[in-house]
Nucleic acid binder design. Structure first.
Length: 867
RNA sequence: AGGCGCGUAGCUCAGAGGUUAGAGCGCCUGCUUGACACGCAGGAGGUCGGUGGUUCGAGUCCACCCGUGCCUACCA
């Protein structure tokens, strides 16, 4: 166990510089390299979240990535070949935005590639227009820089990633996987294209998915508006000349196609099947019954517009209404000619006059204008009533979403809802209650997954369309490339059987202009990292994966979509376990975010508190629990690391002679350490790393404060070589065990100490077992165990009591205690000979006067005056 | 509105039905002790959010309520 010739103890051990010492050493020795010769059963594979590189890593990333590393290190020490790659999510809108600002450029897809283009040295005030390939090149250039900075931080933090296995979501190989999977879904009819109302961001001018929505509270107003019931109609049944609706979006009146009320609503039943006239525009629209209409909302009758919200889409579809769309892709009201279907009016000139004022305005401006018009026309009943209400936004957007009809690609989701719920139940969630969020989301899905985006930097749809003799694009029959060709970019590559000069020509072809949503590629991370489909050997050794670690706010996107893709592709779960990390909260309990200006630079944190210190803080956050940002905890972690250095120096500094562990106190310590190991292993297997750290730490402090103090004199040989040998053997065994228990949490300090006396890395040392400790002790009979435990307990009781009295007497420790009088039960008194020597040394007590009696008393009689 | 967390010392958190509810930080009092002053020893500090219930026994289980955070939803 201990080789004195191997021992190298530093004079003054310190934490400073351990990160830059061990990072490169691990890299050189390859301790974290994945051994791909191992069979699936001996592999532990991790589907690491690829952080978005356009931006910076924040303390929340450090927090959650540490959690994954803890598990990876545990599994590695358990003997698994850990498959732990690292990815970068450089695909998508955040990168586009960052490149635009960083270089001062804008993508103009109509331009052609300029091979000699160089971005201006500093961003010009007016952005430079560049072609899509040039733009994509700049995205690549910038993300490479970002990825270097990210890797440096992760290495400094001590993530035990195999750095030879990094991937980027925009890389050629990721694009190949993404396009292959898409084409496979297309072939099987699981991906389809359709022109339909879709959620639309008017600033980014792209479709977005349901999963990217968020509600924001906005100021708005209810407008009560009168729809005239045409003369000549029998209005007696309704009894009034007009019906009043309430709306928060009066600017959509020109897009109104019907009114709707609940079928059972007696107030409006007389109107069902009749027509009413829209104010200002005089368009006749039917009044229809539908159960979704809520009699208690507004006036109980609503106008249906194409399209104000998702309910409008439902009504429009289910009631077979026409489309009368006014909001354009850029969010302004379109020019429209009244008098032609569907823009028919009883008074087209009047309608045209009103509308001329609105055309071209943004929705917000049109709202203001139309309220004036309605007021003048007498159609506004009362004044608008201000309210605040939840409005749907694209999560990265600045203006409310609109619903715009456009041609988009979808992946079938709805019909798999039940199967996906079953997959969710099959997955092991850590913590378990996170499954509810997945189920919430699956239950709430209201459409298939829209994966096309009208953007530039992303994985292109690998399809072209023929253009027929009259110039129509044949969307129904996409031309697909051969799998071997992938990845392709249809905007520059040419389909088989065509020439490049036929692009955009009659009888020629066009490429699909869109790119895939970033989640459409991110949802394939298991396929990407495990080598599907080109590296079948790697795939068989790593898939389905063991663990997906991620934050809980992207269950509805990354986790759900990955389960969907794996279900569709392999009819299997992509991983066995999902571990959800919580968020980092401010001291005031709000989620830390950049906008609040309270994000700390992670590297500065690591440098100040040491990577081990920061990891200690992160590891104290239980799976799934939101955790307060607390530099105090980092200081505590740092102190623990320093304590490990010093205690190790003590243990190793005088570890001769080694003997058998035969002293009751030593045996008791070893047995309780064995119990800790068993508990820790079980907790770690259940992903409860926080518990392991907490228990190990608490054991370690007691070990230092009580056990080390108790055996200090003995191990220095004050009570003979045999007694010293037992203490030394127990100390060395305990140190070896504790270092390995701490290794996943504090990789730097544990490796440093390990290197003083052991060959190889602690991070590939075997995870400790209770059995290996118990084997060091010969006698485990019940009477012996009880005696040992009672002796150790009694010794710590005396330790505590005498320390307390010395402290109250304000006596320095160097002052010897002349005698301690002890009154106790006879079984306790019987323990005194076992622990008396240790206690005398530890407490500087000259003599114990012991007698049998009740009640128990431990009394310091006096202190020897210093000469 | 429905669902899921959380509520324990001033702060951050452990307490897996069973002695007198714990730790760290902070605070107070001592102490340069031969691993460590980046340290050591000791002390003060609690109606376990509330009300009922189950139990020999509840911080722990059940019901309801309060506060707080998040997820979800077709709120015109």
């Amino acid at each position: 166990m201990l080789d004195p010739t191997r021992l190298r103890l530093p004079e003054k051990p310190a934490l400073e510089g351990l990160e830059s010492k061990w990072g490169p050493a691990w890299d050189a020795s390859g301790v974290y390299r994945f051994d791909r010769s191992r069979p699936r059963a001996e592999v532990y594979s991790i589907d690491t979240p690829p952080p978005t590189v356009s931006g910076s890593l924040h303390v929340g990333h450090v927090f959650s990535f540490t959690h994954t590393d803890l598990v990876a290190r545990f599994q590695r020490m358990r003997g698994k070949a850990v498959f732990y790659p690292m990815g970068w999510d450089d695909n998508g809108l955040p990168t586009e935005r960052r490149v635009q600002n960083y270089y001062g450029v804008r993508c103009d897809p109509s331009l052609t590639y300029d091979p000699s283009f160089q971005p201006p040295p500093s961003p010009p005030s007016r952005p430079v227009s560049i072609s899509r390939p040039n733009f994509v090149e700049l995205c690549g250039r910038l993300t490479v820089e970002d990825e270097k900075a990210f890797e440096h931080l992760w290495r400094y933090l001590g993530l035990s990633v195999d750095w030879s296995m990094t991937y980027a979501t925009i890389s050629k190989s990721s694009q190949r996987v993404s396009q292959l999977s898409f084409l496979d879904l297309l072939r099987r009819g699981l991906a389809y294209q359709v022109e339909a109302p879709t959620l639309w961001d008017v600033d980014f001018r792209t479709a977005v998915a349901q999963a990217e929505l968020e509600d924001r509270e906005m100021a708005g107003a209810y407008h009560r508006i009168a729809f005239r019931i045409p003369a000549g109609d029998d209005v007696a049944a309704y009894g009034r000349p007009a019906v009043e609706i309430e709306t928060t979006r009066p600017e959509l009146i020109p897009a109104c196609v019907a009114l709707v009320a609940h079928p059972d609503d007696a107030r409006y039943r007389p109107l069902f099947g009749r027509e009413v006239e829209t104010p200002l525009f005089g368009v006749r629209v039917p009044v229809k019954p539908h159960p979704l209409a809520d009699p208690s909302k507004g006036s109980g009758i609503a106008m249906i517009c194409t399209f104000g919200d998702i309910t409008d889409v439902t009504w429009w579809r289910e009631l077979s209404l026409p489309v009368r769309a006014v909001i354009q892709a850029d969010g302004t009201l379109r020019p429209t000619t009244w008098g032609e279907p569907p823009w028919t009016s009883i008074d087209p000139d009047r309608a045209q006059r009103f509308y001329a004022d609105l055309a071209g305005l943004s929705a917000a401006k049109a709202r203001v204008r139309i309220v004036e018009q309605l007021r003048e026309a007498g159609a506004l009943v009362g004044e608008p009533r201000p309210i605040t209400h939840a409005v749907k936004f694209y999560e990265k957007g600045d203006r409310p979403l609109e619903i715009v009809t456009s041609r988009q690609w979808f992946i079938k989701t709805i019909e798999f809802r039940d199967a996906l719920l079953a997959r969710g139940a099959e997955l092991r969630w850590h913590p378990g209650y996170m499954q509810a969020r997945y189920e919430n989301w699956a239950h709430g899905l209201n459409g298939d997954w829209c994966i096309s985006r009208q953007r530039f930097f992303g994985v292109p749809f690998p399809v072209w369309y023929a253009v027929d003799e009259v110039g129509r694009v044949q969307y129904e029959r996409p031309i697909v490339p051969d799998a071997a060709q992938l990845p392709i970019d249809p905007s520059s590559d040419v389909p088989a059987g065509y020439r490049a000069d036929q692009r955009g020509q009659i009888g020629g072809f066009v490429g699909d202009p869109d790119v895939m949503d970033t989640w459409a590629t991110s949802s394939l991370t298991p396929q990407i990292v495990c080598g599907w489909p080109d590296d079948r050997d790697l795939f068989d050794r790593t898939f389905p994966m063991d663990l997906r670690p991620q934050a809980h706010d992207i269950i509805r996107t990354w986790l759900f979509d990955t389960v969907l893709r794996s279900h569709l592709e392999f009819d299997a779960l992509p991983w066995k376990n999902a571990a959800l990390s919580g968020w980092i909260l401010d001291p005031d309990r709000k989620k830390m975010s950049k906008s609040k200006g309270n994000v700390v630079t992670p590297l500065a944190l690591l440098e100040e508190h040491g990577s081990d210190g920061v990891r200690y803080w992160a590891a104290s956050g239980r799976p799934g629990a939101d955790t307060a940002f607390d530099t105090n905890q980092m200081r505590v972690g740092r102190r623990l690391a320093i304590k490990i250095l010093n205690a190790s120096k003590f243990v190793l500094g005088s570890a001769e002679p080694q003997g058998t562990i035969h002293q009751p106190v030593d045996r008791a310590m070893i047995r309780s350490l064995a119990a800790l190991v068993e508990e820790s292993t079980e907790a770690f297997e259940d992903y409860d790393y926080a518990r392991v750290l907490q228990r190990t730490e608490s054991f370690f402090w007691r070990f230092c404060d009580d056990y080390l103090e108790l055996v200090k004199g003995r191990r220095y040989g004050e009570h003979g070589g045999d007694a010293a040998g037992s203490a030394n053997a127990a100390l060395v065994a305990a140190l070896s065990t504790l270092l390995r228990l701490f290794a996943p949490f504090l990789p730097f300090v544990t490796e440093e100490v390990w290197s003083w006396w052991r060959d190889g890395s602690v991070h590939v040392a075997a995870w400790p077992t209770g059995a290996e400790l118990l084997a060091l002790v010969a006698d485990h009979s019940e009477p012996t165990r009880q005696l040992d435990d009672r002796a150790y307990q009694w010794a710590t009781d005396v330790l505590f009591e005498v320390r307390k009295q010395r402290s109250e007497a304000k006596q320095p420790l160097k002052v010897p205690v002349t005698s301690v009088s002890i009154t106790a039960h006879d079984t306790t008194v019987g323990l005194m000979p076992i622990v008396e020597q240790d206690l005398k040394s530890a407490l500087r007590v000259k003599r114990f006067d012991v007698r049998v009696g009740e009640p128990r008393a431990i009394v310091v009689d006096g202190y020897e005056p210093l000469s």
